[in-house]
């Protein structure tokens, strides 16, 4: 099956805005992503090594302030929804399939290593910055939060700044 074209970006943006607006209207909060990964990761640590969680103040605080674990976490459910929604969209447009996308000049191995390093940095940065592109930048912009907007500027500013040095990963 030939994969269909992507949706018009403005239409997609408008629809995404409506989803965000609806979410804020119903729940009083925006969307997010990295918080869900955090919830699952930290409670997994607690399950595997409860001793360690007790000895590490940060982990202990988190577990105590989120007593329900991931199954009571709003963002975890939201991200499960993201997986379902993205999969439905992928099926409808014929884009589902196991593959690896990379720049033309790098090997698969380099791409995977870069993805892991990128993910690591993003994970770390989203903890320090209290949210990622969805939770901080997008939702922050919608509610006009100063912190959200400067985080957004920092993310995109820094990506532009470093883009030149990593052009070999992406361009011909």
């Amino acid at each position: 099956m030939k994969s269909k074209l992507y949706m018009n970006p403005y239409l997609a943006g408008f629809l995404m805005g409506l989803v965000l607006l609806g979410t804020i209207y119903v729940t009083g909060r925006g969307l997010g992503a990295s918080g869900a990964v955090k919830s699952v990761t930290l409670s997994a640590i607690e399950k595997i090594a409860p001793e360690h969680t007790n000895n590490t103040p940060y982990l202990k605080d988190y577990t105590e302030s989120h007593p329900g674990g991931p199954l009571k976490d709003w963002l975890v459910f939201e991200v499960i929804g993201v997986i379902i929604g993205a999969f439905i969209s992928g099926v409808l447009s014929g884009r589902v399939g196991l593959k690896l996308e990379r720049g033309p000049n790098i090997t698969n191995f380099t791409r995977i290593v870069a993805a892991i390093i990128g993910g690591l940095l993003f994970g770390l940065g989203s903890q320090l910055g209290r949210g990622c592109t969805s939770g901080s930048a997008l939702s922050g912009m919608a509610v006009m939060s100063f912190g959200g907007i400067i985080t957004m500027l920092a993310i995109f500013g820094s990506a532009y700044l470093f883009a030149y040095f990593f052009r070999k990963l992406w361009l011909k």
């Binding site: 990128g118 940095l121 993003f122 994970g123 320090l128 910055g129 993310i155 470093f162």
Partner: peptide, 21 residues
């Protein structure tokens, strides 16, 4: 933390090609 976190995320973005969502 917003500025530093954002800068680290930006670097992660250009190396990894994605953001968490």
């Amino acid at each position: 933390s917003a500025l530093a976190g954002g800068a680290i995320m930006g670097l992660g973005f250009i190396i990894g090609g994605f953001c968490p969502g």
